[in-house]
Nucleic acid binder design. Structure first.
Lengths: 140, 140
DNA sequence: CTTTCTGCAAAAGGTTTGCAGTTAG
DNA sequence: CTAACTGCAAACCTTTTGCAGAAAG
């Protein structure tokens, strides 16, 4: 999984460096939006050190290939969990535990496009983040 | 229109101050997301001065009563243009000219809630921003 | 006249840049 | 060995805080 992302980067001519693997590992394990400093802190707990600038640059790179996304409602980053689905990637963010679930729905995109079209707008991309409760937190 | 917002603030016990009116005026005239410093710059051009801290505080206040919104894709603020509609407030942002159009659609909210529900998520609020071209820019 | 609000100074956060040294391939 | 990458220092931009003086009702 980290390997998958690394391979995609390599295919584009980017190197498989230790810092890139570390950032990918953290994003994969902690499925919540993390800021660059969050990531640095988590790595520090594990006895690893990365400069914050390095983390910023790695996140930029990952986002540029859609291997990660910036969640705007919190400002944190998550690893992309979808591959090759159609439709914009959307997020459900739990207000309680912070967990992220990603999904895409082509039909929903189409409906939104139609709706906007009726208002005279020609949509190219959707930013969409739901906040609420994940099943686990809803049970409680 | 500025007056409407001011009256709402007054009804909550807030004062109708000159800085608040100035910020509301700018947001109303320039229908694009503006940062606090953007607003300060625009006012400066008009020979008015507001401290940036003041602008931050006024925007906070306006947002807390939904008289303004923060557009997350750009980080700027816009005056709310809807009153008492049902459904979450959504934005269409023109990639070309930056203009904002706001709308709400109760049915769309319901559909999104149902969709999320099927994925085990209980939605309470939608953040939704479309980027694309407004009719004016699309014609060109 | 009293409470709320604004301006100012300063601090605190977050993000970016340029460059020298290191590392991957 | 060479180009790409990371770390460091510093700059920059954004946002927040505390307090003294000004303004609204």
């Amino acid at each position: 999984m980290v390997q998958d992302s690394i391979r995609i980067l390599q295919a584009q001519g980017y190197k498989a460096t230790k810092p890139r693997k570390l950032v990918l590992e953290v994003l994969e394990q902690i499925e919540k939006p993390l800021s660059p400093y969050d990531i640095q802190g988590i790595l520090r707990q594990r006895g690893k050190y990365l400069n914050h600038v390095t983390i910023y640059r790695i996140l930029d790179l990952l986002c540029s290939f859609n291997l990660a996304h910036k969640v705007l409602s919190s400002g944190g980053f998550v690893k992309c969990s979808l591959d090759a689905v159609e439709g914009c990637h959307r997020f459900m963010v739990c207000q309680d535990c912070g967990a992220i679930q990603e999904f895409a729905d082509k039909e929903l995109c189409q409906e939104e496009n139609d709706l906007a079209r009726n208002l005279g707008f020609h949509t190219e991309h959707h930013l969409s983040e739901f906040s609420g409760l994940c099943s686990r937190c809803y049970e409680k």
